[in-house]
Amino acid sequence: MPASDLQDRVSGALLGAFIGEALGVGPHWYYDLDALHADFGPWVADYTTPRPGRYHAGLRAGQSSQPGWLLELTLRSLVERGAYDEADFCRRIDTQFFPLLDGTPQGGPGGYTSQSMREAWRKRVQQGLPWGRVGGHADNTEAAERTLAIAVRYAHAPRQLAGFVGANTVLTQIDPTIGAMTTAYCAVLGLLVQGHPLDAQISTRLMALVRSGELPFHTVTAAALDAVPASAEAAPRPGQFASPDALLTPGNIARAAADPGVRIEPAWKASLVYGMPCAVYHQFPAAYYLAARFADDFEAAVLHAINGGGQNQARAMLTGALVGAMVGLSAIPQRFIGGLERATQRMEWARRLAAQIERA
């Protein structure tokens, strides 16, 4: 991949995530779609300011709430350290983030702190537990929202990508299913940064990485998906996810998105099909669907993610990273870049991250 193309994809993935997150600041967590339309009209098409009394009230259109704040913290750690440095990441959380929290949902930068970070704060700050013992069982996409920067940095090194994403995830979320689905999402993003499409074959590519030992997923099937005899099955390795199902989901959904016999109309209703809540098993499938359906149209992808209501901020952030990686920064509408806070600084960090990848 030419360096200029790599930089465009890296920047597209990261700015795509920041843009998707900021688009959700105003219309976040409307599970009543009639209320969403009453406050923002029939179609949210740009950044909006939260209504008084809503989540993120006090922020302005184009600003980031906490997921964007944490993604930026992770990105800066990667850029300034030149690689993933867990000790540096934890130090930044200890000194720059946790002092801003008070343990309540509405406390902290951005107007809302997720369950997983509140649990980590209580164990780390109030109970004094060390890192490695503060993770909880929240099933949200909080870890994916920050580790997507790690996935971009190690897109060409899937073994490191999986190891670093998995290690960072368990700092706040210890459920192995959450870890598997988060790592799978980041592995998909890594392939898109490489230049692969989000199509029906993406799961085949992911499973090839499993068989080569580069992704830590256990499998009981051979290349042709024929069952392996029990006598020939390798024993699962420590740290290996029990099932490859999280890697098979993206290909199945991409196939459905391209199948004229399987239509979700309008596409924002993917939130109704896959579910509007925060859990990973609602969010990742919807993001895969919208990214596969609008693989060459960043605006359509993120706006359909936003207009589906519910946890639309995470949906748009995850979708924005996927489609941004495929189309590149050059194909993201300028109004989204121009209206995003600190866009120039964030593009510079993305440029520096791409330079690290080129030198690796």
Rank of each mutant, 00 (worst) to 15 (best):
G82S: 13
R153S: 08
Q240R: 12
L15H: 07
I253E: 00
W43F: 10
T344E: 11
R211V: 05
W69E: 13
M1N: 09
Q66K: 09
P176G: 03
T204E: 12
A45E: 12
G195T: 10
D94V: 14
V134R: 02
L78W: 06
G308V: 07
A292K: 00
F336L: 10
G68T: 07
A38Q: 14
V193M: 10
G110E: 01
T169P: 03
L14H: 04
S64Q: 15
A350F: 03
V44G: 00
L272N: 13
T113W: 05
E341R: 13
A223T: 15
D85F: 03
L303Y: 02
L340V: 06
I337R: 06
A292G: 07
G111W: 03
T95F: 11
R91T: 08
G328S: 06
Q115T: 14
Y185H: 03
V193E: 03
W131P: 02
N168D: 08
E214T: 09
P277A: 11
L322N: 00
R146S: 05
S271H: 13
R133N: 08
G24V: 02
P52C: 12
L101W: 04
P250N: 00
V165D: 02
L272F: 10
G41L: 07
L206P: 02
W29M: 15
D199A: 14
R335L: 07
H56F: 06
V193C: 10
E341K: 14
A143Y: 00
D85H: 07
D139V: 14
E214C: 14
R122G: 08
I93T: 10
G163D: 06
Q126H: 14
R9W: 02
P277V: 05
A149S: 12
A360E: 11
H304F: 04
G320H: 00
P277R: 11
G320T: 02
P266W: 03
R124L: 04
A234S: 13
A17D: 01
P99A: 06
A38G: 15
D102I: 14
K123D: 05
A254Y: 01
S243Q: 14
S330Q: 09
G308P: 06
Q127M: 13
W131R: 05
T141K: 06
T95S: 15
A287W: 00
Y47A: 09
A256Y: 04
P244A: 05
L33S: 09
G20C: 06
T177A: 13
R335G: 05
T221G: 13
A167R: 10
G135I: 04
Y112M: 14
V125W: 06
W43C: 12
D88A: 15
F97T: 09
A38F: 08
I174Y: 08
M276E: 08
R293V: 01
A155D: 05
V210H: 02
A321Q: 04
P197M: 01
I306R: 01
E214V: 11
Y154G: 02
A316L: 01
G310V: 11
T48M: 09
L148F: 02
G179P: 04
